[in-house]
Design a protein around this nucleic acid. Sequence first.
DNA 1: AACGTGACCCTAG
DNA 2: ACTAGGGCCACGT
Length: 127
Amino acid sequence: MSMEQGTATARPGSGEFERDVHAVARLIPPGRVTSYGAIARYLGAARSSRMVGWAMNRALEADPNGAPDARPVPAHRVVNRLGMLSGRLHFPTPTAMAERLIAEGVEVRDDRVVDFDARFWDPSTEL
DNA sequence: AACGTGACCCTAG
DNA sequence: ACTAGGGCCACGT
């Protein structure tokens, strides 16, 4: 049997890397935040921080096929290395990301996490 | 199928 | 301290 089209269910972007990113993100404790680069580094792909952002984007998307791994991913806890909410525009509303953080006790001001260093959670160190 | 565009980050001038 | 550029790689056009 030829397997040329065998991947009929091949979902673009559903790679191992993306799944790992989601797995790590789910380990971020409420009230803490991490960065794209920190997750990338932890997964041994220090230069693929952009892909982490893309993975968050996918996680946020309503599961198109009711994926088996439809557990929620706390994408709002991932910010850039300066603590800025660079992904806020990808949420349902431009303020949803900040609101979710605030609900967890994270102070946000001008689209930026207040006291970022203290809130920062580094998987490489804490995990 | 090449090209531009990113929820980024690091290095060099 | 600031600006530019390179690398990464999935996606839309």
